[in-house]
Write a protein that binds this DNA or RNA. Structure first.
Length: 295
DNA sequence: TGCAGTGTTGCTTC
DNA sequence: CGAAGCAACACTGC
């Protein structure tokens, strides 16, 4: 398998959040370590960040789009975006002389350990680590009351009860352009990236380049239903695993065998045996079946 | 060996 | 105003 990468989209982030709730809810943060200050965007210095965060309890953990929010005691909230390659890990590490090494054997010794750049030491002696190969991940500390403003541009939450067809169609129709691009637009629907947009459009039998204004009501309906189906199926499977994605405890996600088109260029379509094709859209790859998904 | 490809977001440019 | 392009960064595959 080439180019092993973790690309957290909604199902992977949701899986992480559910795991985090089981493991670290109610824990107090006792110390923070980092060797890459740029990751912490707010407050400006690591010293300030440590000062404001140490001693606070993790009271609530939730997700908005691909963001993870840790609500802390006394009105603070930690906002984390994993971007392309961020991983959260739970375990124990030895921190010495500006570096660290794993204390335990098992999944923690795998390669993702190499890229740990931020560690939270908890009051049970365990740690929450952020590993990030490409160092794009972002961590910000906000006042809880500022969060709404910070997250206001994010679009619909596709797994919520309020995600109904009329709203979905209305939001998509406000935009112009190719349907794949609009599905990935975080201000329209929050949480869909390159993998799941391809899978959703295959399920709905819609060409990724189809223009929004050319979609019929039936086609909107198919995309809406596919969005719900694919995302909930992926959450159930605990996310994808084509990359080196691991859950907090180091297990693989189970979405891989369910993946129909993404990174399957040249393989047979599971519905009609036609070869899966790859085309470029806004600098990235779109995978689709040229027979099932026609313009 | 060097360079295109990998994906998310935000900023700059036109 | 919107879109397109690029930078942030590191590694893999050809």
């Amino acid at each position: 398998m080439r180019n092993k990468r973790f690309m957290p989209e909604l199902p992977e982030v949701e899986t992480t959040v559910r795991d985090l709730r089981k493991i670290i809810l109610g824990r107090k943060i006792e110390d923070v370590w980092s060797d890459f200050k740029k990751m912490i965007k707010r407050p400006k210095t690591l010293g300030q960040f440590k000062k404001e965060i140490i001693g606070r309890k993790i009271q609530k953990i939730w997700r908005r789009g691909k963001n993870i929010i840790f609500e802390l005691s006394q009105g603070k909230a930690l906002l984390l975006h994993q971007k392309l390659t961020g991983h959260l890990l739970y375990g124990t590490w030895d921190i010495k002389h500006g570096t660290w090494k794993p204390k335990e054997k098992g999944p923690l010794e795998e390669k993702i350990n190499t890229y740990i750049h931020l560690l939270f030491v908890l009051d049970n002696g365990k740690m929450l680590a952020l590993s990030d190969l490409r160092k794009f991940a972002k961590v910000e500390l906000w006042d809880k009351k500022e969060l709404g403003e910070e997250l206001k541009d994010l679009g619909l939450e596709p797994l919520e009860k309020s995600f109904i067809f009329q709203k979905f169609k209305g939001c998509l129709k406000e935009k112009r352009g190719k349907v794949k691009q609009v599905l990935m637009d975080q201000t329209v629907i929050a949480g869909i990236g390159n993998i799941y947009s391809d899978e959703i459009l295959f399920e709905a039998k819609i060409h990724p380049f189809k223009e929004i204004e050319k979609l019929s009501d039936k086609e909107f309906k198919r995309i809406y239903q596919a969005t719900r189906k694919i995302l909930s199926k992926a959450v159930e499977a605990k996310g994808e695993s084509i990359s080196d994605y691991r859950t907090l405890s180091g297990e693989k996600g189970g979405f891989d065998p369910l993946r129909k088109v993404y990174r399957r260029e040249g393989e047979k379509c599971s519905r009609c045996d036609t070869n899966i094709k790859r085309i470029k859209l806004a600098g990235r790859s779109a995978y689709f079946c040229p027979k099932c998904q026609q313009l």
